[in-house]
Design a protein around this nucleic acid. Structure first.
Ligand code: FES
Ligand code: FES
Lengths: 148, 148
DNA sequence: ATAAATAGGACTATATAGGTACTGTTTAGT
DNA sequence: ACTAAACAGTACCTATATAGTCCTATTTAT
């Protein structure tokens, strides 16, 4: 399905929560408890987000996670990429040799462009936007009125 | 992953092929042979596309499939929807009760807007566009230059 | 009558996502 | 120094949904 993974959904919830208090530091247990997500899953996701350099961590007693950048500076696209890899709608849009029939296929290059459009849509929304619904970002507004 | 299903990829290939000769009628076997896709899979996809009213069929000897509308009038979004259901990035963006934590979640309504943006991006590209690479559609052009 | 072709559905095998567990490392407090 | 809190890394299992196949019925030109 053309749908983000459930884990990605969770990850954005985590990031949005952190974005509400960018100064504070949260432990994995705190977040799991507050958002009602199983702790092991939360821990796993936080690790992946850390490796993507979207979070900073402090170890030991009293440690925890916090955002690596300002909420405004982190896009939804980055969160999605961190969890499920680069946004590419088709196999062939990501690299060579992935798609079965690269030779005889006319649609390949077009899928690349469509993927880019989707990526841009996700890049246009920041965590700061997500933290305060309903979303009023001008970027997204613009994306709405594309249909003639 | 934020990726269309492989079957959807195949389906677009089929539709693009049909779009090149909108007048002609193709049998499932012809398409399978020409595109190098297993026949049973092709047959299955064509059935689904038919049920979505994107194709018309003629049974019996000499029968086959052809587009139900002009290539310009069928969007990629319609093909995607026919194969894998409506475009909704999150569970909750589709209907109520699907997402685990609708109550305490702030991001829900924003995901709906993002889904819409993606949907619009897919609606902006027609089969006629896909049939002639590289894609020069003004709609897609516009979607490219969203990033400031 | 026969063969070509679609219509519809049921079934299985497999890849992937989702979730869990275990072990190691760092650090604050006592 | 010792202990407990918390992150770091890895490896593994399981449930689910995708991809793919098969079978049977119906329609129609020759
Ligand atoms: S090369 Fe991948 S769909 Fe055409
Ligand atoms: S309600 Fe589904 S992600 Fe928030």
């Amino acid at each position: 399905m053309l749908r983000i993974a459930k884990l990605t959904d969770y990850a954005t919830l985590l990031m949005v929560r952190l974005a509400r208090d960018p100064a504070r530091s949260f432990s994995a247990a705190q977040l799991a408890d507050e958002l009602r997500i199983p702790l092991p899953t939360v821990a796993k996701l936080l690790k992946r987000l850390l490796q993507a350099h979207l979070l900073t961590s402090v170890r030991g007693v009293g440690g925890g996670y916090s955002l690596a950048h300002a909420p405004r500076a982190i896009s939804v696209a980055e969160v999605v990429s961190a969890i499920e890899g680069p946004v590419a709608l088709t196999e062939c849009a990501r690299g060579a040799g992935n798609c079965s029939l690269e030779g005889g296929c006319a649609a390949g290059s077009n899928w690349k462009l469509i993927s880019r459009a989707v990526r841009v849509a996700l890049e246009a929304v920041s965590l700061a936007d997500m933290a305060m619904p309903p979303l009023q970002s001008v970027h997204v507004q613009a994306l709405q009125e594309k249909k003639p």
